[in-house]
Design a binder for these strands. Structure first.
Lengths: 215, 215
DNA sequence: CGAGACCTGTGACAAATGTCACGGGTGACC
DNA sequence: GGTCACCCGTGACATTTGTCACAGGTCTCG
């Protein structure tokens, strides 16, 4: 378009090399179309899941990775951890549908550079990518505020374990077997968690903990 | 681009007028970018939810509506029902993340013209839109096969009602109050549904019925 | 060392849940 | 008219779940 002619006060010589990971092909293709319109962004690869995203990233070393949070095999944060551990110069942006406060904390702990919800206007995404490529950070202000006002987790490690399994088990018996505990112990943990969270039953408690991003 | 010059054997005079509804702005914007690249497609509006989609459609009368299934206020099928009832000449395509067999049946009953999963390659979407605009139908073959092999619902109307409420209520008492029934009756319906579905508890039964698209 | 938090377990109890048998009512279909 | 499916309810029963008190173990911190 502009034959590389500098336009702004700080022109970037090479285009920003971008990798996009999203398990929904339609969405990934649409994002590629959206960002492909930007002259200073070059899409170098697309990935279907977290494992593939990490592998491609470590091979191609793009400037920026756009990772969906919900993906098979490895979620966006797991992929980000692997990427940043082995190629810390790559900047990672997490995109998510349901932004839970605790997830942002997990993402920040993984040292990601950007965190945006899918509710963000499409026109702003390219600017976020440019900021991140330039070494800045971008955290969605709504989610950041929610994460700051959210109280920290009152549950113990074991209570969290039990709630985690609760989400996929139907009976206390199942939970106990999965964790190699007696049913009585499981019920004690569940009762404690329910009391702390003010939940009426274990499923509500597990749902609350999930919403908060604690599990 | 082509100044209206016929290019194919059956050139369409005017571009296809398209409305896109998706509650996630980023996705909607990306789809607009993707489809905006097609010279024969003109995006006339975007909507954030099902109610807004129906209102805009009835006002603008686009050729084709692309509706996300999961939306606030009214889901894609509810919006499609309203649109097709009042403006049957508008073609509707439903796009969905989790394609459950029963949902396809509901969508077909609403007389939609297209049904595509978000796992579809982005490049094919424009072709589907063209086919649909030309009066054809496009149903994703995977989902169609699943819908044909899926057995039909063994549950009675009332059992389905109870399972529907079960998904959002925590106790039998709540379900009974929501449906103006006695708790005993609710437990009987639940027991019957659980037996028919081979579920261990009411939540599993509700989950199964949901997965099948029966509720 | 003592206090306190956490992990794990038991036993007892009340409430919620699921199962079963049974009753009466309606409406459709043969 | 009889049969059948469905709707709605009751009552009795076993199981599951949630609550509570308590107890022994580890580990950390002052």
């Amino acid at each position: 378009m502009s034959f590389g002619t500098p336009q702004g006060e700080m022109p970037r010589q090479a285009p920003i090399r971008l990798l996009i990971a999203d398990d929904e092909q339609l969405i990934r293709g649409a994002l590629e179309a959206l960002l492909g319109l930007e002259p200073d962004i070059e899409i170098v690869a697309g990935a279907d899941d977290g494992v593939m995203a990490a592998e491609l990233t470590l091979g191609l070393l793009p400037d920026v990775c756009l990772l969906d949070l919900e993906m098979p095999r490895a979620d966006g944060i797991e992929a980000a951890e692997k990427i940043i551990a082995e190629a810390p110069e790559v900047r990672v942006i997490i995109v998510t549908r349901h932004a839970r406060p605790g997830v942002l904390r997990r993402a920040l702990a993984a040292r990601i550079s950007g965190f945006v919800p899918k509710s963000m206007p499409a026109g702003e995404l390219a600017d976020v990518i440019r900021d991140v490529a330039a070494g800045k950070r971008y955290i969605d202000p709504e989610i950041a505020a929610a994460a700051l006002t959210a109280e920290r987790c009152p549950l113990t490690e074991r209570e969290l374990d039990v709630l985690r399994v609760t989400r996929t088990s139907s009976s206390v018996q199942d939970i106990a077997e999965a964790l190699f505990l007696s049913t009585g112990t499981v019920r004690n943990y569940l009762s404690a968690a329910m009391t702390k969270l003010g939940a009426a039953n274990r499923r509500d408690a597990a749902e609350q903990a999930w919403q908060q991003g604690w599990i």
